[in-house]
Simulated assay, not measured.
Amino acid sequence: MSDDHRIHPSKVAGDRASLTAFLDYQRATLAMKCQGLTGEQLKQQAVPTSDLSLLGLVRHAAEVERSWFRLVLNAEDCKPLWPRISGELAEFRVDDADVDEAWVLWREACEGSRAAADAVESLDDTVGFRGEVISLRYVLTHMIEEYARHNGHADLIREAIDGEVGE
């Protein structure tokens, strides 16, 4: 993981620029954790106590991007990319998953999320969703938290696969 091409967020930017830069940084971190691995390694459930895989995290990130930015923020009719199976999140079931498709869908979801955020004038603008009022500020902050948590998982999975550790 020595090829760190992430853009580090500014230490003096305003709120919106900081939030969007930190979210992009977390997105880039997930991609960096996966770089250089084969499709089989990306599918590997490398931590004995967990069913998580790096590919499952990428697929989950695509779903979360779509749900928060398209479904919640834009009120789009956004069907899951991988429908639930017996109540479980199907994006984590990767045995037969198409690795290239997952990356394409994740990148498309990220681009769609950036466009949705850019279309909102203020961080404080709100939408109603299932009886709650949600601001763009909340969505961006939640997404940073979502990626940061799963990037911690990705650290452990990657280390178990090939010993690579990193930021």
Score class of each variant (00 low, 15 high):
residue 87 G to E: 00
residue 94 V to F: 11
residue 118 D to Y: 05
residue 87 G to T: 03
residue 105 L to Y: 03
residue 64 V to A: 14
residue 87 G to L: 05
residue 117 A to C: 04
residue 116 A to V: 05
residue 106 W to Q: 06
residue 90 A to M: 09
residue 88 E to S: 08
residue 62 A to T: 01
residue 66 R to L: 08
residue 115 A to K: 11
residue 80 P to D: 04
residue 85 I to H: 12
residue 84 R to G: 02
residue 72 V to P: 06
residue 79 K to A: 15
residue 118 D to F: 10
residue 69 F to H: 09
residue 63 E to W: 05
residue 116 A to K: 03
residue 110 C to H: 06
residue 80 P to R: 15
residue 102 A to K: 05
residue 82 W to E: 05
residue 71 L to I: 07
residue 100 D to C: 01
residue 99 V to Y: 04
residue 93 R to D: 11
residue 112 G to L: 08
residue 79 K to F: 00
residue 66 R to F: 03
residue 81 L to M: 13
residue 76 E to N: 14
residue 76 E to W: 12
residue 75 A to M: 10
residue 96 D to P: 13
residue 82 W to N: 11
residue 118 D to C: 07
residue 103 W to N: 05
residue 114 R to S: 14
residue 88 E to N: 09
residue 75 A to Y: 04
residue 87 G to Q: 11
residue 106 W to G: 00
residue 61 A to D: 03
residue 71 L to T: 14
residue 113 S to H: 01
residue 93 R to M: 09
residue 69 F to V: 04
residue 92 F to L: 06
residue 86 S to A: 12
residue 118 D to R: 12
residue 115 A to L: 10
residue 89 L to A: 13
residue 71 L to M: 14
residue 114 R to I: 12
residue 87 G to N: 05
residue 91 E to I: 01
residue 109 A to S: 14
residue 85 I to N: 03
residue 70 R to E: 02
residue 114 R to L: 11
residue 66 R to A: 09
residue 81 L to D: 01
residue 98 D to E: 04
residue 117 A to W: 09
residue 92 F to I: 01
residue 116 A to E: 00
residue 93 R to P: 03
residue 80 P to V: 07
residue 90 A to I: 05
residue 84 R to I: 02
residue 118 D to V: 03
residue 106 W to K: 08
residue 96 D to E: 15
residue 86 S to Q: 09
residue 95 D to S: 14
residue 61 A to C: 12
residue 85 I to D: 04
residue 76 E to D: 15
residue 65 E to L: 04
residue 66 R to C: 02
residue 65 E to A: 07
residue 103 W to P: 03
residue 97 A to W: 07
residue 108 E to H: 09
residue 92 F to Q: 03
residue 92 F to S: 04
residue 92 F to Y: 15
residue 62 A to K: 07
residue 117 A to I: 06
residue 74 N to H: 04
residue 67 S to N: 11
residue 118 D to N: 11
residue 101 E to V: 08
residue 63 E to Q: 13
residue 103 W to R: 11
residue 68 W to G: 00
residue 67 S to F: 15
residue 63 E to K: 07
residue 106 W to M: 10
residue 97 A to E: 06
residue 80 P to C: 08
residue 99 V to N: 05
residue 89 L to K: 13
residue 111 E to N: 12
residue 72 V to K: 03
residue 111 E to R: 14
residue 94 V to A: 10
residue 115 A to T: 10
residue 110 C to R: 06
residue 110 C to Q: 09
residue 73 L to T: 08
residue 115 A to V: 06
residue 96 D to K: 15
residue 85 I to L: 13
residue 115 A to R: 14
residue 83 P to Y: 10
residue 65 E to T: 01
residue 71 L to V: 06
residue 84 R to C: 05
residue 106 W to H: 14
residue 77 D to F: 09
residue 93 R to T: 11
residue 105 L to S: 06
